[in-house]
Computed example of a mutant assay.
Amino acid sequence: MGHLYDIFVGTIFIAGTVALSLAVYLTARWFTRKAPPDRHPEMAGAMVMRIGALHGLILALVFAQEMAGYQRLETHTATEASAIADVYNDAARYDPVALMPLQQTMVSYTREIIESEWPSLGRDEGLSAEAWLQWERAYAMALDLEPANARQTSLRDHMIAQLHAIATARNLRDADGSGSVFVLFWFAALSGVVLIALGYYSHRPEPHNLVLMSLFSAYTGVILFLIYGFSNPYAAPAALSPAPMERLYEQISAPSQ
């Protein structure tokens, strides 16, 4: 169902952009039907070229920004999963019996991220309060440790540092995962589609002209769809899976079952 939904949304973007371009073009032709516009193709072509360059630049910059945020989120998720694994394993090295509650807390924290926090971020509801509570419990346990030797001192310090890294990664996930495409971008993007279509009013609505305009509009629709998808990487159509967390959870939850 997820892939079908992605295809459906992508089709809407592509078909909508093509329909908008052709509708604007044909409307402009209808308004200029009494005065032959075919005398001005050179001027229209120059205008379309300049608007098209600016339009392409805007799309490229926003696409690059959203793609970079998507990739940063992947990095933050992998970093957080690595830090969770370090805390879990260091707790076993410190004292596998006394720190079993700390290990179980990290298991519960990971499960909360996968089952609740990820969908919550997809709905723009922010980070899970329960996940923060689990983190606070683990942090308090690490702070209350009283090392008996240098080995335990090193392990305690490393666990505290990794818990700090988890908190930082959580905040960065929230920042990079929130929708960052402004409404003004969509206004600029659609304005570019409209103005480019208007600029071709001086060309006759011959089949090959309509096909070429449709191809350009369809590609623009693809880019707009990708920008829309990357703008919220926690939700469809370009939802990022918490794969590092899921793999880690499979590993650390098995011993506790």
Score class of each variant (00 low, 15 high):
Met141Val: 05
Trp186Pro: 09
Pro41Tyr: 04
Ser108Lys: 14
Met49Arg: 09
Val48Lys: 03
Ala138Arg: 02
Gly122Phe: 06
Leu226Met: 14
Ile160Tyr: 01
Ala83Glu: 03
Arg93Tyr: 04
Gly10Ala: 11
Asn149Val: 02
Met159Glu: 08
Leu54Lys: 01
Asp176Gln: 06
His76Pro: 00
Arg111Ile: 00
Tyr201Cys: 05
Ala68Ser: 14
Ala239Phe: 05
Ile223Arg: 13
Phe225Asn: 06
Leu248Cys: 06
His76Gln: 12
Glu112Pro: 06
Glu246Cys: 04
Tyr234Ala: 08
Ala68Trp: 15
Pro96His: 03
Ser256Pro: 00
Ala44Lys: 05
Gly16Trp: 09
Gly52Glu: 05
Thr153Lys: 11
Leu155Lys: 04
Leu121Gln: 12
Ser202Trp: 05
Ser180Ala: 10
Phe187His: 04
Glu206Trp: 06
Ser154Leu: 09
Ser21Thr: 13
Ser82Ala: 13
Ala35Arg: 14
His3Glu: 14
Glu130Cys: 02
Thr110Phe: 00
Met1Glu: 13
Phe63Tyr: 15
Gln104Asn: 08
Pro237Leu: 11
Pro147Leu: 09
Thr168Ile: 13
Thr11Ile: 15
Ala131Asn: 01
Ser108Tyr: 08
Gln152Gly: 02
Met159Tyr: 05
Ala243Ile: 05
Asp38Ile: 07
Ser154Met: 10
Leu4Val: 12
Trp30Leu: 14
Ile51Tyr: 05
Val18Tyr: 11
Glu130Thr: 13
Tyr219Cys: 02
Asp6Met: 12
Pro233Arg: 09
Phe31Ile: 13
Ala254Leu: 09
Ala15Cys: 15
Ile7Ala: 15
His40Gly: 07
Thr79Ile: 08
Asp6Phe: 10
Thr79Lys: 08
Ile51Gly: 02
Leu155Val: 01
Val222Gln: 07
Met100Tyr: 03
Pro96Trp: 03
Leu210Tyr: 04
Glu250Asn: 09
Pro36Asn: 15
Ala60Arg: 01
Ser178Met: 03
Pro237Asp: 12
Arg137His: 01
Leu212Ala: 00
Phe182Asp: 11
Pro237Gly: 13
Ala46Asp: 08
Trp118Tyr: 07
Gly45Pro: 11
Ala60Pro: 01
Pro244Arg: 09
Leu102Asn: 00
Gly52Phe: 06
Val48Glu: 04
Ser116Thr: 12
Thr168Glu: 10
Leu59Gly: 06
Asp6Lys: 15
Trp135Gln: 02
Ala254Asp: 08
Gly16Asp: 12
Ser108Cys: 02
Arg173Gln: 11
Arg151Asp: 11
Phe8Tyr: 15
Gly126Tyr: 00
Ser128Asn: 02
Ile7Cys: 14
Ser231Asn: 15
Met100Lys: 08
Pro101Leu: 03
Ala238Leu: 15
Val107Asn: 00
Gln152Phe: 04
Tyr219Gln: 06
Ala161Arg: 11
Ala254Asn: 04
Asp124Trp: 01
